[in-house]
Amino acid sequence: DEDSERELEKLRKNNASKEEIKEVLKRLGFSEDEAKKLAEKAG
């Protein structure tokens, strides 16, 4: 959803580590696997 998109955008701009991105995604309700895949894509 839009909030998670914004959250990811912010992380990308701040050069967050894949680990940080994954944690945020998991907080947003993604499964471990989904979060890992998305973090890879974002990283």
Rank of each mutant, 00 (worst) to 15 (best):
K13C: 14
G29Y: 00
G43Y: 15
L11K: 01
D33T: 06
S31W: 01
A42E: 11
D1T: 12
E19M: 04
N14G: 09
E9D: 09
E40H: 07
D3S: 10
G43Q: 10
E20N: 03
G43D: 11
K26Q: 11
S4E: 07
E32T: 03
N15G: 14
L25F: 06
K22M: 15
S17A: 05
E2A: 11
L28P: 00
L11E: 00
L28S: 01
N15V: 03
A35P: 02
E34R: 04
N15W: 06
D1Q: 13
R27F: 03
L25T: 00
E40V: 07
K26F: 02
F30V: 03
E23S: 07
N14K: 13
D1M: 13
R12I: 14
K37W: 08
E34T: 06
R27A: 08
V24C: 13
E34P: 00
S4M: 15
D33R: 05
L11I: 03
K41W: 15
E32Y: 03
E23V: 04
V24N: 04
D1Y: 13
L25Q: 00
R12D: 01
K41G: 12
V24D: 02
E23T: 04
V24M: 14
R12Q: 06
D33G: 05
R12P: 00
G43H: 12
F30S: 00
K36C: 14
F30N: 01
A35I: 12
A35N: 01
A39F: 07
K22L: 15
K10E: 08
A42R: 09
D3M: 12
L11F: 04
S31D: 06
S17Y: 04
S4R: 13
L8V: 05
L8A: 03
E19P: 01
K10C: 15
V24A: 14
L8Y: 06
D1S: 13
E7R: 11
L38S: 02
V24L: 13
R6P: 05
S4A: 15
E9L: 05
L28Y: 04
A16D: 02
A35V: 07
K13Q: 09
E23C: 15
D1H: 13
G43F: 15
K18G: 05
K26R: 13
L8R: 04
N15Y: 09
E40T: 06
E2T: 12
E5T: 10
E20S: 05
A42Q: 10
F30E: 00
R27W: 05
R6N: 08
K36M: 14
N14H: 08
E34I: 07
K37E: 11
I21K: 00
A42C: 14
A35E: 01
E2H: 11
G29K: 01
K13D: 04
A42M: 15
D33A: 10
R27Q: 07
K10V: 06
E20F: 09
I21V: 04
F30I: 04
E5Q: 12
D1P: 11
A42K: 07
N15T: 04
E7N: 05
K10H: 08
V24Q: 07
I21G: 00
A39L: 12
E40P: 02
N15K: 10
A39Q: 03
D1F: 14
L38D: 02
L38P: 02
A16I: 06
A39I: 11
R12Y: 13
E9A: 12
R27M: 06
I21M: 07
F30L: 07
R12S: 03
E23M: 07
E9S: 11
I21W: 11
L8I: 09
L25V: 00
G43A: 12
E40F: 07
K22S: 06
K41D: 11
E32Q: 04
